[in-house]
């Protein structure tokens, strides 16, 4: 895997993750929030839940998916980091 391929894979990963990021916050939490409010999740209206709870859980998951995916990507290309470079 060349460093160009690495960069391409990195960009692809970023665009997928940022797309999900946009959908769960701006999408479900704001734009489609009122539409989603007709469904409920326990005592929450779904749109309200995304706005005040769900989007935050989603953000946490996104960052860790990124950390893990980058770990494998860097292993593949053989990047090893030195401490205190």
């Amino acid at each position: 895997m060349s460093s160009q391929d690495y960069w391409k894979a990195n960009l692809k990963l970023l665009s997928v993750l940022l797309f999900v990021w946009f959908i769960i916050s701006f999408g479900f939490g704001i734009i489609f929030s009122e539409f989603l409010d007709q469904f409920s999740l326990g005592g929450f209206k779904l749109g309200f839940w995304f706005a005040q709870q769900g989007s935050i859980y989603g953000f946490v998951i996104l960052i860790f998916v990124y950390v893990i995916a980058m770990h494998f990507l860097e292993k593949k290309i053989g990047i090893k980091e030195e401490e205190n470079e």
Binding site: W21, S25, I30, A51, S55, I56, F59, I63, Y66
Partner: peptide, 16 residues
Amino acid sequence: AVYLMGWTGGYVLLAL
């Protein structure tokens, strides 16, 4: 919710 999403969503941008 603007504060909840706004002040946490930025961390995704920061990390990525």
